[in-house]
């Protein structure tokens, strides 16, 4: 029997548009995952502390503020500091392709934009997590 995948869904930074994060959290729940939702206005430090305590397999950040480069880099750096090297960092929002490519080259997972079918998210997370932490 495979274990449950645990995902932290968080909104770092100052923008208050949490509708997308909630839709994604519900979709991942419906895909059978255990989703820890932390709500709005999280600092990168808070996100990584929660991820450590919850021992999640993946962190999904929703960023609509334009501060994605700063926020994803900061979270990734803190994850490395805390030894969360086998945890997937992914997310979505309004993020230009060239920034997605830049973050991806630095070790961030795929970032999703508007219009992404919800099942693609669950499939991507399941596949990526299986590569990092055994599911069986």
């Amino acid at each position: 029997m495979t274990r449950k995948i645990r995902v932290l869904v968080a909104k770092p930074g100052l923008d208050g548009h949490d509708r997308g994060a909630k839709v994604v959290a519900a979709a991942l729940r419906d895909a059978g995952m255990e989703v820890i939702y932390t709500g709005l206005h999280q600092t990168p430090e808070m996100v990584v502390a929660a991820a450590l305590q919850e021992d999640v397999d993946a962190i999904g950040l929703s960023v609509h503020s334009g501060a994605h480069l700063t926020l994803f880099r900061k979270v990734l750096g803190l994850m490395r500091d805390k030894g969360l090297n086998d945890v997937l960092l992914t997310g979505g929002g309004i993020i230009p392709q060239k920034d997605r490519d830049a973050l991806s080259a630095e070790g961030v997972g795929r970032l999703f934009g508007p219009g992404t079918p919800l099942k693609d998210l669950a499939e991507y997370i399941t596949t990526e997590v299986a590569n990092r932490r055994p599911l069986v």
Partner: peptide, 12 residues
């Protein structure tokens, strides 16, 4: 009970 998933929101 349908998907087996959960939305854990107490940390909020």
């Amino acid at each position: 009970p349908f998907s087996g998933g959960a939305l854990l929101g107490d940390r909020v």
